[in-house]
Write a protein that binds this DNA or RNA. Sequence first.
DNA 1: TGCAGAAATTGGTTGGACCATTGGACCACT
DNA 2: AGTGGTCCAATGGTCCAACCAATTTCTGCA
Lengths: 244, 244
Amino acid sequence: MDQNSLPPIQTTARDDAVLKALVGFVRAEALQPGDRLPTERILAERLKVSRNTVREALTRWEGLGLVERRQGSGTYLKAAVSPDMLHMPLTLAGGNDFTSLMHTLEIRRALEAEAAALCAERASPADIAEIKRKLDIMEQAFRTRDGMSSEEDWEFHQAIYRVSGNPLFEQIIAAMHELFHRFWEHPLGVRDFGHASFPYHRTIYECIAARDPQGARAEALKLIATVEDDLKRGAAKLKLSSQT
Amino acid sequence: MDQNSLPPIQTTARDDAVLKALVGFVRAEALQPGDRLPTERILAERLKVSRNTVREALTRWEGLGLVERRQGSGTYLKAAVSPDMLHMPLTLAGGNDFTSLMHTLEIRRALEAEAAALCAERASPADIAEIKRKLDIMEQAFRTRDGMSSEEDWEFHQAIYRVSGNPLFEQIIAAMHELFHRFWEHPLGVRDFGHASFPYHRTIYECIAARDPQGARAEALKLIATVEDDLKRGAAKLKLSSQT
DNA sequence: TGCAGAAATTGGTTGGACCATTGGACCACT
DNA sequence: AGTGGTCCAATGGTCCAACCAATTTCTGCA
């Protein structure tokens, strides 16, 4: 390890300075997600700050999901870091599960439609082939496992976001996706949740392949609409069962 | 073997327990945003944990924007807290180039349109009056200060997001707004940046007041389009000037 | 009464200590 | 060779007792 890439801290605002130095260190060492950071004791010594200060800084990063600490093992990078990162903790408070789920879907409806349209505008032949490949995998998984294809389904969508050329789509929708699935432990009693959305994956693909942005947007909206319908059905069923 | 049948066991979670207790305290005391929390020393004593542990917990909340610490003064609540809060840290890799700015606008285009449509669907008469008020303030500021009304402009939009009933709109668009404005100090040489968007604020309001979701969506799209045009003009001018 | 300075309060930092967990080294036994 | 057991150093988690720096509150003099 290059010890010169961790110079001592100078001014006030200690823990922020620690994080800034750590960003520089990660870049200098070209650390990838999964790599281990220096131990807290070493960081404290190199940066000439107390170990507690290092810990406060790492606690911040841990809260942002940038880093994972494992006692007895070390602190590991969980995501790529860069000097000009913007951290925006989304807070979804109050309300019942149904309301929160609908909120994530409203965001997805807006972004899925836009991403699909941009994808249809910008997709190269190679991009279209890649999306087709993901679609085939997903349809195959759907048939063999009788509707349980959430993983392959998600990869199909991710391919579209990537081809849209705007990395923000994937990041934000991924956040919505994760937010959605945190409520998802109890599928609201709807066994065939998501079945209705199946055919629209192919129609979205066809619109993209045909370079038809408006069509892709419309099909994406239909897809989200089916999920919203499933959700409403589940909520109605839940309300019914809770009244007994 | 079903790997999910052996989840990792939970061993220690001191600071999480502190936050849980703090949520209960805030509820029991009915603390509102702006109120002061007990001092770290008192919390440490009451909860029978070290002050360091309390600090780590508060650092987490500070990172989530739930709390603000002021040295010498105290720790203050910044947002409402509830036991069923869900946090999703969103870290966006920023860029200061033209492409990154366009990316933030693509997201805004999708979300502004959806938020305006939802707002038109759901706005109560009181909501409409509030939006009108913000519009008047903004138009007044625009005329008296000759186009410099970014602050009031932003408040007008925020009112729309709030009325949409989905807090995620405001949070995500705020992130895009900040990402955009981080590089807007020099508006790419376009002096009247944003002027063209002015009339659409009123047309959006009129569609909302008329409960016309599709109209509101269309007007919001036009508004973003003018900003995109301004950006493209600025980029072209910049490219021209850098070639001299 | 008004206000400057002292004193108390509070978050920020330090250094040192000990605990709990982890992971590797080593070893005995099969 | 493989399995399980024991030991040990490394590492994050917690605790303590100070002191520092910013802020607020109180006090006493003009």
